Simulated scan of single mutants.
Amino acid sequence: MANLGARINDVSSNQVEIPVHCDGVEPKPSEESNIDYSQRAQWLRAAVLGANDGLVSVASLMMGVGAVKQDISAMIVAGFAGLVAGACSMAIGEFVSVYTQYDIEMTQLKREREANNNGGVNGEPQREKLPNPFQAALASALAFSD
C-alpha cells in the first residue's frame, strides 16, 4: 500500500489542525473584533449617495447644455455651477437627515437614563457611537464633488 504522507517523528505531514473552543474558555479578542463598523456606515452611505448623485446630475446637466448650445465655455460654467449647487444641496440634505437620527437617538438615551435612574455612567461611551451629522455632510459634499 502506498504511503499517503511522509512521516516525521511519527506525525504525518498531511495532518490538519482544527482549533476547538472549549466551554468556559474565551478566545483572545483580536483588534478586528473591536472595530465598530456601524459608525463607518454613516459617512460611507453619504459618500456613496453623494458620488452617485454627483456623477449623474452634473453629467446630465452638461449634456443638456451641450445639446442646446455648442459653446464649450457654457458647458463648463453650467457644470461648475451644478457641481457647487449639488454639493451644497447634498451636504445640507445629509446634515438634516443624520441630525434627525442623532436627535432621536439622543432622546432615546435620555429616556433610558431616566428610566434606569442612571446618572450618566454609561452615557459617554454610548454618545460616541451616535452618528455625526457634520461628518456625513462633509462626506456627501466631497463625494458629490469627486
Rank of each mutant, 00 (worst) to 15 (best):
residue 92 I to C: 03
residue 98 V to D: 01
residue 23 D to I: 10
residue 40 R to K: 12
residue 35 I to T: 11
residue 76 I to Y: 05
residue 123 G to T: 06
residue 105 E to W: 03
residue 142 L to S: 05
residue 135 Q to Y: 01
residue 133 P to S: 04
residue 40 R to S: 11
residue 51 A to H: 05
residue 84 V to H: 02
residue 31 E to L: 13
residue 91 A to T: 04
residue 1 M to V: 10
residue 41 A to R: 12
residue 85 A to C: 05
residue 90 M to D: 01
residue 76 I to M: 12
residue 66 G to L: 07
residue 135 Q to F: 02
residue 137 A to V: 01
residue 96 V to W: 03
residue 11 V to M: 07
residue 18 I to L: 15
residue 131 P to T: 02
residue 8 I to N: 05
residue 112 E to I: 08
residue 66 G to Q: 06
residue 137 A to I: 03
residue 15 Q to A: 10
residue 98 V to P: 00
residue 24 G to W: 10
residue 81 A to P: 00
residue 63 M to N: 13
residue 63 M to W: 01
residue 39 Q to W: 07
residue 135 Q to M: 12
residue 45 R to I: 08
residue 54 G to D: 01
residue 117 N to C: 07
residue 100 T to F: 02
residue 57 S to F: 07
residue 74 A to L: 14
residue 4 L to R: 07
residue 59 A to M: 15
residue 115 A to Q: 10
residue 144 F to S: 04
residue 138 L to V: 10
residue 77 V to S: 08
residue 145 S to I: 02
residue 24 G to T: 08
residue 132 N to V: 02
residue 131 P to A: 11
residue 88 C to Q: 07
residue 87 A to N: 04
residue 79 G to P: 08
residue 94 E to V: 06
residue 79 G to Q: 10
residue 128 E to I: 09
residue 24 G to F: 09
residue 102 Y to F: 11
residue 17 E to C: 03
residue 83 L to A: 12
residue 44 L to A: 14
residue 82 G to T: 07
residue 138 L to A: 13
residue 28 K to Q: 09
residue 131 P to D: 02
residue 2 A to K: 14
residue 141 A to P: 01
residue 56 V to R: 14
residue 60 S to E: 03
residue 61 L to A: 10
residue 38 S to G: 07
residue 80 F to I: 15
residue 103 D to Y: 05
residue 26 E to V: 14
residue 71 D to K: 12
residue 66 G to A: 10
residue 49 L to M: 14
residue 55 L to G: 13
residue 104 I to Q: 14
residue 46 A to V: 06
residue 2 A to S: 10
residue 19 P to V: 09
residue 127 R to N: 10
residue 112 E to S: 09
residue 58 V to P: 02
residue 57 S to T: 15
residue 38 S to I: 03
residue 93 G to N: 10
residue 17 E to D: 05
residue 105 E to Q: 15
residue 41 A to P: 00
residue 85 A to T: 11
residue 115 A to F: 06
residue 78 A to I: 08
residue 74 A to T: 08
residue 89 S to L: 07
residue 47 A to I: 04
residue 84 V to Q: 04
residue 31 E to V: 09
residue 66 G to T: 05
residue 3 N to R: 14
residue 145 S to C: 12
residue 108 Q to A: 13
residue 62 M to I: 12
residue 94 E to G: 00
residue 109 L to W: 02
residue 92 I to Y: 06
residue 7 R to M: 13
residue 6 A to Q: 15
residue 13 S to K: 07
residue 19 P to F: 09
residue 1 M to G: 15
residue 22 C to K: 14
residue 92 I to W: 04
residue 6 A to H: 10
residue 2 A to G: 01
residue 2 A to F: 13
residue 123 G to Q: 06
residue 109 L to Q: 15
residue 48 V to C: 09
residue 137 A to L: 04
residue 47 A to H: 05
residue 84 V to L: 15
residue 50 G to M: 05
residue 8 I to A: 06
residue 133 P to E: 01
residue 106 M to N: 06
residue 64 G to W: 01
residue 126 Q to S: 09
residue 65 V to P: 00
residue 146 D to G: 13
residue 111 R to K: 15
residue 66 G to C: 06
residue 36 D to N: 15
residue 91 A to R: 01
residue 145 S to M: 11
residue 65 V to Y: 03
residue 74 A to K: 08
residue 65 V to R: 05
residue 22 C to G: 04
residue 9 N to F: 13
residue 133 P to G: 03
residue 144 F to Y: 15
residue 84 V to K: 08
residue 9 N to P: 00
residue 83 L to D: 00
residue 37 Y to K: 06
residue 29 P to Q: 12
residue 23 D to F: 11
